[in-house]
Design a protein around this nucleic acid. Structure first.
Lengths: 232, 232
DNA sequence: AACTTTATATGTTTTTTAGCATAACATACT
DNA sequence: AGTATGTTATGCTAAAAAACATATAAAGTT
């Protein structure tokens, strides 16, 4: 059976949902998956279309977003390598409630819905892992809802920087966020216009809270940034 | 074994998650539940405290909310009779990420976490029902995130009125929303100050979109209200 | 019934943020 | 290299919503 490194990591990685499946179950997924490469900027799923099944990100970075009032984009969350997304696709036939696109070159593994559902129906242990993931997503969304509605621009930008760092980690220097988003994406992640995102980042750089080198962002004063994020 | 009408409906109702459990499984829940009555306004769960387990609302109405920046309340969702909530309590030991309180007199059934988890571990069918509920919650939160951040005040109030109607239904006249929230709760549900909620409702009444009789709110022009909600 | 307390209503001011305009800069393309 | 295109940066203006200030009405309390 053909295995590429992506489906391989999807099935075997230490923190993968599927690592404890039986050989039989893994073979089912192997038989019913599809690997696809997306260039930076390409759309992986479009809001309203029917999704094939669960998504696994073998490499790269993705954004999950919705288009709201007047075509304005709101990023709901960012996906990282070795992460799963689209649990909701598994449990209803309704079209995707959001779009997904590649923020960097991405290797995506699509796992077909029905074979996976069959496995779930006979594997409560796996179900528990799924539910834990989903429950964490609910908690994340609850927190995000309050942050994005209540915090002021500075608080939202601070939170976004910390979120990006916590999601993607830093370079060995411990400061440089391992993500090169456009200012526009940062704005859409923080629920504000691009100019306000740029302005706020510039101010924070002037205050030595962060350092800006193009799209490389460094967190210089973590304590203060957290403080700004917490106070809103 | 003692059964009150609330645990009864929790186990047997046509659309209850538990209706298809075996007699044995139902008995476990029966043995490990706790019924409690809450007066209007009383707190059922406080953010940060450890929750006992899953919640079932036998009667009444609840609000699920968080306290954000500067003590400002944001209502995340409203619960209705025969509804379950707090799925996230089941899958991690972390303290409750939100508070729950009674908007009307409520009969709440608490179902203990560990016995229910044991049932889930052996009942993938039940797991699937849980996952479907959770996936709907995720979709709801995604939509809400975009609405609350992007829509203007009028759009948010319109959405809240429609949401309340869809959640709690109407009186036989088909117009009167079966929920008597304070203006403050309506404001916190719509992410705005109380005065802005009052003002906007007054305006909508003046435009004959709705009719106000104290806390009784009637939707007079559904089409226009949906239009206002959609356009933001 | 008189008195608190709380909820609703509405006008005014101030703050925040979006919207717009323009410039500098970087990147991709031919 | 030169041109087009997109991104980042910054100032200015307008709109939206919060904050504040009272007034009125309703609901509880003694």
């Amino acid at each position: 059976m053909y295995r590429n490194q992506y489906i391989e990591s999807c099935l075997e990685n230490q923190n993968s949902l599927f690592k404890n499946l039986t050989q039989k179950e893994k073979e089912v997924i192997l038989l019913h998956h599809f690997h696809s490469f997306f260039k930076k900027g390409e759309q992986i799923i479009e809001e309203g279309e029917k999704a094939r099944g669960l998504l696994y990100l073998g490499s790269g970075k993705i954004k999950i977003f919705k288009i709201g009032v007047g075509g304005r984009e709101q990023i709901l969350s960012m996906g990282r390598q070795y992460g799963f997304m689209g649990f909701n696709y598994m449990f209803s036939d309704s079209p995707s409630p959001f779009s997904v696109s590649a923020v960097e070159d991405c290797d995506v593994v699509f796992i077909d819905k029905n074979p996976l559902l069959k496995i779930l129906k006979k594997n409560a242990e796996l179900c528990l892992l799924f539910m834990k993931e989903m429950s964490e997503e609910i908690i994340f969304l609850n927190n995000r809802l309050v942050s994005l509605t209540q915090k002021h621009i500075r608080g939202r930008i601070a939170e976004t920087l910390l979120l990006l760092r916590d999601t993607y980690g830093t370079e060995p220097d411990g400061k440089t966020i391992r993500a090169m988003l456009s200012r526009e994406d940062i704005a859409h992640l923080s629920n504000m216009t691009t100019s306000n995102a740029i302005r706020t980042l510039s101010n924070m750089a002037a205050e030595k809270l962060i350092q800006i080198e193009g799209r490389r962002l460094m967190i210089l004063n973590n304590t203060k940034l957290e403080h700004i994020s917490d106070l809103g």
